[in-house]
Design a binder for these strands. Structure first.
Lengths: 182, 182
DNA sequence: GTCTATACCCGGATAGAC
DNA sequence: GTCTATCCGGGTATAGAC
């Protein structure tokens, strides 16, 4: 349970939370400085006392996703370990990844469909989010990248409604699971 | 080699081609009615004599991608068949998918990161683009969806520079190939 | 089929007063 | 830290003349 405030002031923290709610409820297109200020009951120019520009707010949101996704995957990892082999580790990680992404589709899209602000991200966060998958792949980079691509592809296509209506996606996930486990 | 004009006038066809060039050279953000008109040497309002709105231009571009992707995959399929088993069919399809997507990243993004205009797309086109993959999966819907998700995930992560700099992505593709072939 | 002119709305961001 | 006022730019789209 890492600290997600990153040394921001309480007010700045509140702005990020509000931005998140705005994003998740109304999508990327609704995330504007004016709309954000409206929700906070202030005027847009006031936001610039807390963040240098809009991008800084977005970076804070992206960091939030990485943080939470890392926690969700680490929790799935721990739950599997506790069960002493009664569950399959990759199954748990897939479920955690899918559940998190589909619960926050707009945040996932923001983090995934734009440039990744590697320099602005907290040190080591990106790697931390990737580690559970790398561990379950026994450290194989190539395998973990392929597995990650599958999970991201499933989630992205699902979020954008790309599969035929009524498609049994649980089965598709299990098919991928079997392919990468076997 | 299907007709991609869809009964559009030569002028409308020229507009689509210009829109495509604009998109591919400068990205989605540059695809505006003003910029498009500039390239054509006309004024933005004139575009509305040929297309009802901007979305119609985008739909034409998305149709173009489906058409070309279908052709690329069908060509890979045919090439494999001609080789009498000397090549692996899924390998060929993956290569064709990846090559096409990376050659047209902005068009791929436009077609993939927004709502899919199913009703406005030419009849049967979406299915046609999917069929080569379904055929190589021996008609298994679940497997073909999983394979598609992997390919889309790889391409999407690659386009957005999500993999670590210097990562050997050929190996990741081959790992996915092995998983789904084995 | 193209033009000019324009309406309308939205965005990010800054200056300077309080 | 918030405000008002404002700049500047951009977008989609329409009306009406030629």
């Amino acid at each position: 349970m890492a600290d997600q405030t990153n040394g921001r002031s309480p007010r700045a923290q509140q702005i990020v939370e509000t931005a998140r709610a705005l994003l998740e409820e109304e999508g990327v297109g609704a995330l504007t400085m004016r709309r954000l200020a409206d929700r906070l009951g202030i005027k847009a120019p006031s936001l610039y006392k807390h963040f240098p520009d809009k991008r800084a707010v977005e970076v804070a949101l992206i960091s939030l996703l990485f943080e939470e996704l890392a926690e969700a995957l680490e929790a799935a990892e721990a739950a599997e370990a506790d069960s002493s082999g009664a569950r399959d580790p990759l199954t748990e990680l897939f479920a955690a990844y899918r559940t998190y992404a589909l619960a926050h589709p707009h945040l996932y899209r923001l983090s995934t469909e734009g440039p990744l602000p590697r320099e602005a991200l907290p040190e080591g966060l990106e790697e931390r989010a990737a580690m559970p998958l790398v561990r379950v792949c026994d450290g194989s980079e190539h395998l973990s990248r392929a597995v990650w691509a599958f999970a991201h592809g499933m989630v992205a296509l699902e979020i954008h409604g790309r599969f035929p209506p009524g498609a049994d996606l649980d089965k598709a996930w299990r098919t991928g699971l079997a392919a990468f486990s076997g």
